[in-house]
């Protein structure tokens, strides 16, 4: 099972990315185009049925992968962009920077990410860019904490002291010794961040604070299908399943790296 985890994870990620990139090829219909077949149950023409505006649900779910990919990657990149440098500096130099950063990180981590994202989204208004920024902002402290901890441990190693002894400056040591040694862990955290971002954005959309319509996104699709659960349960279940599978894919991959 240990060895299977990353394999399953990577397969799920591959499926997700393929779905996002090849959406226009695999989707049977235009996800924005309405038709007269409103709230049709699953059929050979519409494998998952249609929604209240007569749009093909399968196509919308497939295109929803694009939105999730953009949000997941974008937010994780933002989180890394802030978290990694902050963690490196706080961990390597310690002292005053560290004394300032640590309480800040602790404060952020004490607040539940979803609630924080919810509050900020209400303030700035929901759109794709804002969502990416908000989620990145919510996630950077956990990245910073991880990087700081790893750096702190490395700073005490003999080989870093050896690098200082040959005259290596801080920038050199961070680039040549600290970064290569924490890269794996950071990559794992990146995957976990992507999964968190996709999950949280879906939750926000479900609460009506996600991507505004008509752009298809999974959280929004789940919510839209909710009203028709008795007529066509797949309307909610299908996007719900893709969210779960994708989040799991990134999580399994990320958590299998030690």
């Amino acid at each position: 099972m240990r060895r299977l985890r990353p394999v399953i994870g990577l397969l799920l990620i591959a499926a997700f990315v393929a779905m996002a990139l090849l959406a226009s090829v695999i989707a049977p219909y235009d996800p924005f185009k309405s038709s007269v077949e409103v709230i049709d149950p699953p059929s050979a023409r519409h494998l998952l049925g249609t929604d209240e505006l007569g749009r093909d649900i399968l196509s919308r779910v497939i295109y929803g992968a694009r939105t999730s990919l953009i949000i997941g990657l974008g937010a994780a990149i933002c989180a890394m962009g802030i978290g990694v440098p902050v963690g490196l500096v706080a961990g390597y130099f310690g002292g005053r920077v560290d004394m300032l950063v640590v309480p800040l990180i602790d404060l952020f981590i004490a607040l539940p990410g979803l609630v924080l994202a919810l509050i900020i989204t209400v303030m700035v208004g929901p759109n794709l860019l804002n969502l990416v920024l908000v989620l990145g902002f919510v996630m950077w402290p956990s990245v910073a904490r991880l990087v700081r901890g790893q750096t702190l441990a490395l700073r005490e190693t003999l080989y870093i002291e050896a690098a200082r002894a040959v005259g290596g400056g801080s920038a050199w040591i961070i680039r040549r010794h600290v970064w290569p040694n924490i890269m794996r862990v950071v990559a794992a955290q990146f995957a976990v961040s992507v999964s968190f971002a996709i999950f949280t954005s879906a939750s926000l959309s479900f609460l009506g604070l996600g991507i505004p319509p008509p752009t298809p996104d999974w959280g929004g699709l789940v919510r839209a299908g909710f009203d028709f659960l008795s007529l066509n349960p797949l309307m909610s279940l299908a996007p719900g399943a893709t969210v779960t599978a994708t989040v799991m894919g990134f999580y399994l991959t990320g958590s299998s790296v030690r």
Binding site: T157, L158, Y159, E161, A162, A163, V166, G167, G168, G169, W172, R176, H177, P180, N181
Partner: peptide, 25 residues
């Protein structure tokens, strides 16, 4: 150093380790 296990960066090759001082200096 005393500990030749800990004082060499595990991710670097012997060539990189020995050339590091030359690059730094």
């Amino acid at each position: 150093f005393q500990d030749p296990f800990g004082s060499l960066d595990p991710r670097m090759t012997v060539g990189e380790i020995v050339s590091e001082p030359l690059e730094v200096q």
